[in-house]
């Protein structure tokens, strides 16, 4: 398996097979090189690179939609995935300089079919105001994904026309994928244990 992924023409092995990543993977030097070479939109926004995706952008919350629309204009036709992460119990994660860690993070994976590339956008969303602008006007496909992120993590998407729960029942309390949401379990009943009465 070679590192010459089809994205090589654009200077990035965007989707290197996962097994090959450690050998050919982005070392510190190549990481900066590819990041600068591919930061086609909004170059002032902090970037990083990671395994399997060479461009990860960390826009501030108010530049999120700008970022998405610039990427869309740069040929990222489709939004592959959107999800939210609650970093309550893992605040010290690695972030590039200039990015302040907040409790929630909304992670968007964009896909360019024409360039065979992926980029990831990670937006920090604070705990006291968990609201982010909805991307539904730019990528209508995020409809269900934003509803899922709202339902399970509790990030609201401003401008979403139908922000209701999607997986949980509509009268459910709380957002299950938050880290302070109890898991809940049924106690194991052994044979010797006293019965319910």
């Amino acid at each position: 398996m070679t590192a010459d992924a089809p994205g090589a023409g654009t200077g990035v092995g965007t989707d290197e097979p996962a097994e090959a990543a450690p050998q050919s993977g982005p070392g510190p030097a190549t990481a900066t090189a590819t990041a600068t070479a591919t930061a086609t939109v909004l170059p002032e926004v902090p970037r990083a690179s990671g395994p399997a995706t060479s461009e990860i952008a960390f826009p501030p919350r108010d530049r999120y939609l700008d970022m998405l629309s610039s990427y869309r204009d740069a040929g990222f036709e489709t939004c592959a995935d959107l999800c939210a992460v609650d970093y309550l119990t893992h605040p010290g994660r690695a972030l590039p300089e200039g990015v302040r860690a907040e409790r929630f993070e909304v992670v968007v994976n964009l896909l360019s079919l024409s360039q065979r590339r992926r980029v990831r956008i990670r937006v920090q969303v604070p705990e006291d105001d968990p609201v982010l602008a909805s991307a539904i006007d730019l990528y209508p496909g995020v409809d269900a994904m934003e509803r899922e992120a709202f339902d399970l993590v509790g990030v609201r998407f401003d401008g979403h026309p139908d922000l209701t729960r999607i997986l949980m029942p509509e009268d459910w309390e709380g957002h299950p994928l938050r880290k302070d949401y109890g898991v809940g379990r049924v106690p194991v009943q052994f044979k010797e244990a006293p019965g319910p009465r």
Binding site: V131, F150, G154, R156, H160, P161, D162, L163, T164, R165, I166, E170, D171, W172, E173, G174, H175
Partner: peptide, 25 residues
């Protein structure tokens, strides 16, 4: 049909509503 800011965790009906009670947009 749209989420009121600061409301509880229940955000309204998932079901499709009749035309008169649906926001025109």
């Amino acid at each position: 049909r749209t989420a009121p800011r600061g409301a509880g965790t229940s955000e309204g009906a998932q079901e499709m509503a009749s035309r008169v009670s649906t926001d025109p947009v």
